[in-house]
Amino acid sequence: MSVSETKEIIVNGFWKNNGVFVQMLGMCPTLGVTTSAENGIGMGLATTAVLVGSNMVVSMVRKVIPNDVRIPAFIIIIASFVTIVDLAMNAFVHDLHKVLGLFIPLIVVNCIILGRAEAFASKNSVIGSILDGVFTGLGFTFALFLLGSVRELLGSGQWLGQQIMPLDYQPALGFILPPGAFIALGFILVWQKWIDQRATAKK
């Protein structure tokens, strides 16, 4: 794999084709668990672990899976890694596991994971697929962390559990509620598009 190909995988996974900011995939966990930055990090890293593992295995067995059953086979592989991540989180970060709840098993149906298995891992090398999984997952984690940070800061005046806003700050509780997630995500998408437009204008 050349340096340019590696750079393209990294940039596309983290920013240019970010699953949340660009492709608008994985909206269920994005809007459902990002009431705090910590929740966003936890969900993002869990998804990243599944992405890396499933991408690696799909790439390894891509030549032996019949084309007619590739999607069911991919889902079984993804579900296996989700089960591993679910049990590991329950054992080692039980409090976070309880907060994320049903959203962890729902990683199985996250379109980002199946999309990368079908669009990338089933057509590329193991190393490239692992790299794609890592940076697609980190891009997803960044998106959830950023949205969770905005909602937590504006909705409670805290960030990562620490008081940031002045004590007399009146929290905008709407940002903790589901409508606030849509509003915060909208402003973040505007910010992301603005950065891309400035970068394009400088070229």
Results as ranks from 00 to 15, higher is better:
R198C: 10
Q163V: 10
K202M: 13
F103Q: 12
F175H: 05
V82N: 07
Q158C: 09
V20E: 06
I9G: 01
G174S: 12
V93F: 15
V85T: 02
I127L: 13
E8D: 13
V11P: 01
I107M: 07
A49K: 09
M56T: 08
A46E: 05
E5P: 00
V134M: 10
P66M: 04
V99E: 15
L102K: 11
T83F: 13
F145A: 11
L114M: 10
I127E: 12
D95C: 02
L138A: 06
Q197P: 00
I77Y: 01
G19W: 03
T34P: 10
K193T: 05
I77D: 01
M60S: 15
T47I: 11
Q23W: 11
Q197E: 14
K63D: 14
F135I: 06
G53Y: 01
L173K: 10
K98Y: 05
F140P: 00
G133H: 04
M1P: 10
I9S: 05
C111N: 06
V64D: 01
P29H: 07
W194K: 05
R116W: 12
R151C: 05
A201E: 13
G42P: 00
K193R: 09
I71F: 15
V58E: 03
S36I: 03
E118S: 08
K16R: 14
A49R: 12
Q197C: 00
V61C: 10
F182S: 07
A117D: 15
T200V: 12
P178I: 05
D86Y: 10
G148W: 07
G155Q: 04
I176D: 01
D68Q: 13
G137Q: 08
